[in-house]
Write a protein that binds this DNA or RNA. Structure first.
Lengths: 347, 347
DNA sequence: ATATATTCCGCAACCGATTGCGCAACTTTT
DNA sequence: AAAAGTTGCGCAATCGGTTGCGGAATATAT
């Protein structure tokens, strides 16, 4: 049953007033007497009136809608990021509409257009892995819809971006390990076409250069297909018997690497130390807990949402480039090789 | 810059036609000549026209919008469920709008109302843990908006529900362990106010009853705060030294339990076997991989979306109760105690 | 050449709510 | 008691499309 919705007109008929009056009464407009207001409100209640936002926002230029486009619903990071965004969005009386691009630029374009069709007030975008330029976002720019890119992005001077300080995180992770006497470290990185990967790798390289440590090709693992990881790890361990630590760039890579290390019988941290960049969830349920540079998905989400809403409210077109720093969380997956005895103190 | 959007009227002015003609031309209406159509399309293209869906759907009674309300963005299950929903939704030219209730019934009510304000064509709902009755959904029912409850739900004869066959899964898990000689099993369950928890526990109990196996109170762990888990586990192991297996009801509980078992030095499966109900992600990156009864989040999402869209299309008010069966995935975390030698074959 | 049928497009109402303007009725001022 | 000011509400335009109906221009039939 379609159950045709009650409209202002229906209430008007019922109460013998005009739709304009009903509208104002419901909106608590000062022009309407208190008496009428309560009468209207009661009638609306009784008839179970439901406002039609599509109609309302047809006149207004805003829709109170913020669109988020993510490449995939990864189990790591994305959920907490969405949670963060959602909180801020709801606090500011917006609604979040989530789209998934399936890592396809075609989809991404389609969704960006769709967001404009819905007249979203702003768009949050985590770029798909296929995306190498931002032309398809001009639709939004043309409509005057503010856009903020977060997490996975590419170089741009046009759009506001909010990212982890990826290069620094990569450098810090490697340095942390080096400080503890690890000189041969395997780095596990993602697809190099993504800025997040190349930057973290750059930092990793940088740390080696700073200390003039050699860095062999096989020490750097670039994972495009997760299936390749095992073979590449084996190759690295074969080529460099002195490997004492592994660094993984993301949670995804961490859990897989952790599993492969366990399978090959490497004890952590006795045989090999492990370190990651993570939001802290995966490290805390792996055993032993994994020392990592933490970036909170919630924080990234919240800050991004704040920034976007700021752009909407102030109609600002200014471009920002926000880098969020990571914090070190030591959890016992890294052995200190500078000290002769490496037994961990019992607590 | 607001950059006032191009409307049909603008194109009409530009081309010297009427808005009605523009609308029909863009919609490929047979009344319009091919020549005019191309002329209009070119003009629209040149002026970078963006249709306004709010206006379009103001007349139509449908919005092509499906709302999903989840209690939280759990890292397990929810992401894959959303992915499944999203795929079907997009395939059918709907858009998915995701809301998060933060496990609060107040939020849930608010969001249900909001969905009606947006005139969503359908609502998908994973109940919050606070929800004990479904009164707050009547808004939707009154508007004729079809609703489907999935995953976490409560008993209802009014709304369509799509769930895992929870009781059967609990029974099967326990039976599987018993078949392998485990007679003292610890079951780790969630909040008993949730149907999903009580049902899985019921199945667990049922399996014990079937074989007339004793089931002590401490064998059943009910986790409301994750912090309590460790103490309860310890108590169980102290009280029943013959515990040989642990069953966890969800991924969440699995990873925490796995971590606690590792910390207390229990080897899996030599010392204690481990089994779960899961969508298969967590079991595959824990070591050893965990044998589990698998329920695909994607499948749940897809089937639910299909059902809801069916309800929308056929304007059906019929209530369904769909149970999705789980499938056993053996991965080596369960030892067979019925055989004298328990060494696993090397591959 | 007149009548009938097509083709192609414009007119205008409509969806549901918002809002500027105007006006009657009532109150207050002089 | 007439003028001025308030109060409370209705009228009607408007947002941006969609669509039934009608009608002019052209093509086809008689």
């Amino acid at each position: 049953m379609p159950a045709n919705r009650v409209t202002l007109k229906d209430i008007a008929q019922q109460t013998g007033l005009s739709t304009g009056t009903i509208s104002r009464a419901l909106a608590d407009h000062p022009d309407i007497s208190t008496e009428t207001k309560t009468r209207v409100r009661d009638a609306a209640q009784a008839m179970s009136y439901i406002p039609n936002y599509r109609a309302r926002y047809l006149r207004a230029k805003h829709s109170q809608l913020i669109a988020l486009i993510v490449p995939e619903m990864n189990m790591f990071f994305v959920p907490s990021m969405i949670a963060g965004i959602n909180r801020v969005v709801q606090q500011n009386d917006y609604s979040l509409i989530v789209f998934q691009s399936d890592n396809s630029i075609v989809q991404e374009r389609r969704l960006a257009e769709y967001a404009s069709h819905l007249s979203a007030d702003g768009v949050l975008l985590v770029l798909s892995s296929e995306t190498s330029d931002l032309q398809h976002l001009e639709v939004l720019h043309d409509c005057g819809i503010p856009v903020a890119l977060l997490d996975r992005t590419i170089e741009t001077s046009k759009y506001t971006t909010i990212t982890i300080d990826d290069e620094e995180a990569g450098r810090e992770a490697a340095s942390y390990l080096m400080d503890r006497g690890h000189t041969r470290i395997v780095g596990v990185f993602g697809d190099q076409r993504q800025r997040i990967s190349s930057m973290r790798l750059r930092g990793f390289r940088h740390a080696h250069a700073e200390r003039s440590l050699p860095l062999g090709d096989s020490q750097i693992i670039r994972v495009t297909m997760m299936d390749d990881l095992e073979a590449q790890l084996e190759r690295a361990f074969n080529e460099y018997p002195d490997i004492s630590a592994v660094f993984t760039m993301t949670d995804d890579l961490l859990v897989h690497t952790h599993h492969l290390l366990a399978r090959r019988g490497s004890r952590i941290p006795e045989d090999v130390s492990l370190m990651a960049i993570s939001d802290g969830q995966a490290p805390s349920f792996l055993h032993p807990n994994v020392t990592h540079l933490r970036h909170s998905g919630i924080e990234v989400g919240e800050r991004t949402a704040h920034i976007l809403i700021g752009m909407i409210k102030h109609n600002s077109d200014a471009m920002m480039d926000v880098r969020i720093r990571t914090t070190l969380v030591e959890m016992g997956s890294v052995a200190d090789r500078t000290r002769p005895t490496k037994r961990r103190a019992a607590r």
